[in-house]
């Protein structure tokens, strides 16, 4: 039964991969990457059960967090072009957009 779940997750990962390769916009790719991360978390869980040792769920936990932080970091970087926190609040740093960001 874990095999069935794992197969579904792997196929879904392949589909997300197609979206990440096809794009077309930057945000499609970020979305596909985020969705791929969620599926990796699920895959790690089901893989642990499949091999009979579900002790490695800590990694799934870590992935769930890294995936979230990574997505936010990428988006923040694209919006403000920096990781530095402005002391006057984020609104003080005007968002800068390049030509390539829209598409």
């Amino acid at each position: 039964m874990f095999g069935a779940a794992t197969a579904a997750i792997v196929i879904a990962m392949a589909l997300a991969l197609i979206r990440a390769c096809a794009g077309p916009s930057l945000y499609d790719r970020v979305l596909a990457g985020n969705s791929f991360g969620t599926k990796t978390v699920l895959l790690l869980g089901s893989m642990g059960f499949l091999s009979g040792r579900p002790d490695f769920l800590d990694i799934a936990l870590l992935y769930a967090l890294i995936n979230f932080v990574g997505t936010i970091a990428i988006l923040k970087f694209f919006r403000y072009r920096t990781f530095a926190v402005s002391m006057d609040g984020a609104a003080a740093v005007k968002p800068v957009f390049g030509e390539g960001d829209r598409q």
């Binding site: 390769c21 970020v30 990457g33 791929f36 990796t40 790690l44 990574g70 390539g100």
Partner: peptide, 17 residues
């Protein structure tokens, strides 16, 4: 290049799995 950066993130996730 942006696609390459996102795909390399996905590559890491896959190889970690």
């Amino acid at each position: 290049l942006f696609a390459v950066a996102m795909l390399s993130g996905i590559y890491s996730l896959l190889s970690a799995a």
